[in-house]
């Protein structure tokens, strides 16, 4: 590798990392948070067998899982302009990623909710809790624990999928790299460099996952929890 290329990689690194920190990560976090909200609602609608809404939920999951993400981004971006709206790329990307990921996570969460033993709900209703209270305090926390590894998969997948947002003018990491490559014609080194930055992001998220799992599994362990509250 010539020193010119090394020079280029060093110089371009912050210009790739910065859109990563300012676009890719915020896009992922905001979209994923929204996706979780959509997913929990969609999962609960199906779990509680709410008529009509349940059919709508199934339809939503069917459409989203059955069409490519890139097509959804394009429709989300160009669709509104047919009605005279011209939303900015970032907003569309957040919305489309949230809706897309929401459909997948809904299935993950539904599965884990269904995995919570029925006795947990019965016990909740026997102490007088309402359905929503039982869901909020007992079922969802337990389901979230089960779903956590799969959800971690989803968010790590999403970090990388955000590169597709470059197609709708969002200057995230990948588009930034492409622009530099277009000027310098050093395609391979620069794409390897951006791959490396994605790898860093994913690695950090894997660490966070491991930490989160440890936190969440505190009630599964055999070791007594270090007494947080001293009692006589």
């Amino acid at each position: 590798m010539s020193s010119d290329v090394i020079q280029l990689l060093i110089q371009s690194f912050p210009r790739i990392l910065l859109p990563g920190l300012l676009m890719t990560i915020p896009l992922t976090l905001i979209a994923f948070a929204l996706a979780l909200v959509i997913a929990v609602i969609t999962a609960l609608i199906q779990y509680a067998r709410v008529p009509v809404l349940r059919q709508i939920a199934r339809f939503y999951i069917w459409i989203i899982r059955g069409t490519p993400l890139l097509v959804q981004l394009m429709v989300g971006y160009y669709g509104p302009s047919a009605f005279g709206f011209h939303p900015n790329g970032f907003t569309v990307a957040v919305a489309v990623f949230a809706i897309n990921e929401g459909a997948y996570c809904a299935e993950t969460i539904r599965g884990s909710i269904e995995g919570v033993p029925k006795g947990q709900l019965e016990a909740g209703s026997c102490v007088g809790m309402s359905y929503m209270q039982i869901m909020w305090h007992i079922v969802l926390p337990q389901a979230f624990r089960t779903a956590f590894p799969a959800l971690s998969n989803s968010i790590i997948g999403m970090v990388k999928d955000t590169s597709l947002a470059s197609n709708i003018t969002v200057t995230e990491m990948f588009l930034a790299t492409r622009q530099i490559a277009g000027r310098t014609y050093q395609f391979l080194p620069l794409y390897l460099e951006v791959a490396f930055v994605y790898l860093i992001f994913s690695t950090v998220m894997t660490w966070i996952q491991r930490w989160g799992e440890k936190k969440l599994s505190r009630y599964e362990g055999r070791q007594p929890v270090a007494a947080r509250r001293k009692r006589s």
Binding site: E122, C126, I138, Q142, Y219, E220, V225
Partner: peptide, 14 residues
């Protein structure tokens, strides 16, 4: 009050 055969304690609660 109800006491179950399998206890059914909330497993995410102390």
């Amino acid at each position: 009050g109800f006491v179950f055969q399998n206890y059914n304690l909330f497993s995410n609660k102390t």
